[in-house]
Each structure stands twice: as C-alpha cells, then as structure tokens.
Design a protein around this nucleic acid. Structure first.
Lengths: 221, 221
DNA sequence: GGTCCTCTCAGGGTTTCCCCCTATCGCCGC
DNA sequence: GCGGCGATAGGGGGAAACCCTGAGAGGACC
C-alpha cells in the first residue's frame, strides 16, 4: 500500500496498447507504480519498487512471464502475481501457477472484474477465469487445492485418466517419441508404453495420431 | 470526418481491455464513434455510423474480423479497415488483406504509431508493420495462379516443398499410413517413404506426429 | 548436350510403435 | 489383512515407420 491506502500495482506486457488499456481500466482505483515491456527491465523495476501486485502477460519474447515470476519470487516473496493472457490453454495456466502466480485471467476480463481480481489477489485469494477453475484444480488435485472454489464438471473422458497418464498424454500428443518422453519424465520406455496403452484403451483410440487430434480439440496443448 | 474535422474511427475487439487501451492511446486525435465486441453488432453499428476507419482484431469468436470486413465492404465500400492483431502469422495477414483490409499492424505498435497509421489508412495508404511489409509484397508479387486456389503459398518453410511433397504431407498429417497414401496416389510405398523423408528433413522434424502438429498449427488440414 | 530437379522405385537395415502378457511395490479403503 | 489401483518395469512379437544409398525417366533451363 502507498500513503493513500491504494494498492500498488506493476504492469508487465510487451504491448503498449494493452498496458495503456489496463491503466485506463484500473484508473484511480489503484496506484500503477511502474511498467515494463520485457523480462529484464521487469525484474529490475519490480525489485526496486516492490508493488503489492504484478499484472503480467504470460506470452512475451525472452522467456515470457514465467522468467519474471521465478526471478522475483526468490528475492521478493511478498510480491503477488496475477497472470493475464489471451490464451486459455491448460498448459500455460499450469506452468504459470507452478511458477508462483496467484491467479490467471484472460484478457476478455472487464475493467471492474479486473479491479476486483487485483484486490482479491492482494488479499491472498486465488483468482481464476470461470472456465479455467476445473483445469487448475484437476492438475493440483494431488497437492493442495486452492481455497474455497467450487469446481465445475470436468471432462468425463479426461477424468478417467490418472495424473501420470495425463502427463504422458501431453508429450505424446505433441509428437514426442517414447524414448523422449521416458527421458523427460525419467522413467523407462517400457513404462511409457504402459501408460500410452492405458490412455489409448481408456479413450478408445487406436493410435497416436488420433490422440493428437483428441488433445487438440480439447485445447490441452 | 465529423464536424470538427477529426477522423471518425470505430473499434472492434472482443477484449474490453484492448478497446480501452486503443481509446486511451488515440485520445483526442480522433473521434471514436463506436465500438463492438463481436461480429454481429460490429457489422450493424459500422453500417449505421459509417466511420472513416475501422480498427479491428483479426481473431474473434464467431468468424473473426474477416466476416466483418466482407459484410461491411459490400454495403459500405468507403469504409476502410486496419487490422490489428497479436499474430504476425503469414496466413492471417494474407487472408485479411484478401478480404479487403488496407493495412495490418500488430498490437505491439505504440500509440503515436497507431495514430499515424489510422490517418494514413484514411488517406488511402496501405500500412503494415515493419517486418510484415516485405513479406506481404513478396506474397502478392509471386501470386497470379487461379483465384480459387488454397492460400498458403508464401510460407517460407512450406515453400521449399515440391508439389508432390505437399500432397503427401497432407495425407500423412491426417494420419494416413504409408500404404494408404500409396494407394490414394497410385504410387509405391517406397516412393511415399522418399517423399516423407524429404519433408521431414526440409522441415527439420523427426517424425510424422510432429508433422501433424506442424500442419495443425498452420491450419493446413 | 549437359546440368539440375522432380518423381519414381528398390534393397537392406535400424528404430519405433503398438499390442499381448506378467510382475513388483506402495498406498488406500473396507 | 486383503483387494484394488496406480506407477513402475520387463518379455516377446508383428507391423509400421524411418534412414541410407542408388538409380532411371522425364522436363526445364542454359
């Protein structure tokens, strides 16, 4: 907080237009203490100005928002991040949450909604776009679920896969060879085969090609 | 022009944040006479208010900016379009220019640049982001073949494939087995192998599943 | 005529994919 | 504790994919 009691917010986005839009929408409700259009200066300025909340784009040249979150979190753990993106791909969401963001909203959010989201993040809540909640909870089911969110119905077919199978599925659907998946996950090729067999059987598919399409349709890539 | 001599501009983008950013950047330099967040109302309002320039996002639910350009151009040919997008993918650019847009800039454009671009469009100029200009001209220079043909003849990577290789690529990316492709094209399996090898080598991919992924991203399927 | 490219095809080899099967270990619930 | 399930791993085998080399026919270009 600054001397007026307003939240101190920092913006990171490589598009000047969008930074401008955010500033216009947030208006007088918060104090925008700085902004950056690329990773390096973002890290530097955030550490210097220690805002309450950093609003940042996930997709940026030079490593993207992930690099910013990781670098800042180590040295200024009190700074909270709200990821802002045009993408609602499950992978992006998971990665950015893993890195330490407290929320993830798409750019279709309205001004008032964004203001509320920023305040909730500052108070320690987790904030997600409506249709993302399921994905996020699903991925973190094994660990600690975010506080007080009711989850919408998950994909019944995706639901019958075990977490490990889903992990393997993502690699396979992207065109990884079995041995590449094995190396990525540090398991044997034979185990990968087992998982793939299980996935194909459960989803009633007959080969990897269909798996790629299945995953693409569900926007898992 | 309106009574003050300012340009009359209309905004179409499904993201409120971005519309807000554009309004903030254009500021007092032009007269924003309306905005829309989806295709239907965009067409209706543009026809009603007949702005000098329409700034519109290429990627939108419900057909995207293309549908707007086509529908409006038929009934109000004096309205000029400047496409605004996060993407600089070749096929997007070409498609939108074909539809009738007079320019294409990415959202990384600065405020002053955008203002100048809008004015130049209004005056009848064509405006393109720096790194797109050469690209677009190349594409149209080398294109005289049949108007009904498929568009992506300008992708530098796709371009290095021979016609036969492209043909084989389409089948392989759809999941056809070598022998199926051979039967479809009435050639031997060995010949299919040769073509696939050439395609993988030229595109620097290592297997057919990455090819599916590659083709899907380029919307070749 | 010579050169280059494309399309065609082949042999022979290695690797990967996909499908059977079994099997161990650990965790959780009844 | 016993059964179920998930993750791990392996054997074996057939089919398909992939790699490398070579080579002939036809066309285009100079």
């Amino acid at each position: 907080m600054n001397e007026n009691g307003a939240l101190r917010v920092f913006l990171v986005d490589d598009h000047a237009l969008i930074r401008s839009g955010i500033r216009a929408e947030l208006g007088a409700h918060v104090d925008v203490v700085g902004e950056a259009d690329e990773v390096g200066s973002a890290i530097e300025l955030i550490l210097e100005r220690t805002p309450d909340v950093v609003l940042l784009d996930v997709h940026m040249p030079g490593g993207g928002g992930l690099a910013v979150i990781e670098a800042v979190s180590k040295r200024a753990p009190d700074v909270r991040f709200l990821a802002l993106s045009v993408s609602d791909a499950a992978e992006d969401v998971i990665a950015v949450i893993r890195a330490g963001a407290r929320g993830y909203v798409t750019k279709s959010i309205s001004g008032p909604e964004l203001i509320e989201a920023v305040h909730r993040i500052a108070e320690g809540d987790a904030v997600f776009s409506q249709h993302l909640a399921g994905f996020v909870l699903d991925a973190f089911a094994s660990q600690d679920p975010p506080p007080g969110a009711t989850l919408p119905a998950l994909d019944p077919e995706l639901d019958q896969l075990t977490p490990r199978e889903r992990e393997v599925l993502r690699f396979i659907a992207r065109g990884y060879a079995y041995k590449d998946v094995a190396r990525e996950l540090s398991i044997s090729v034979k185990t990968v085969e087992s998982h793939v067999s299980a996935v194909l059987r459960k989803l009633q598919l007959s080969n990897r090609y269909q798996l790629t399409h299945w995953a693409t349709e569900r926007r898992l890539l």
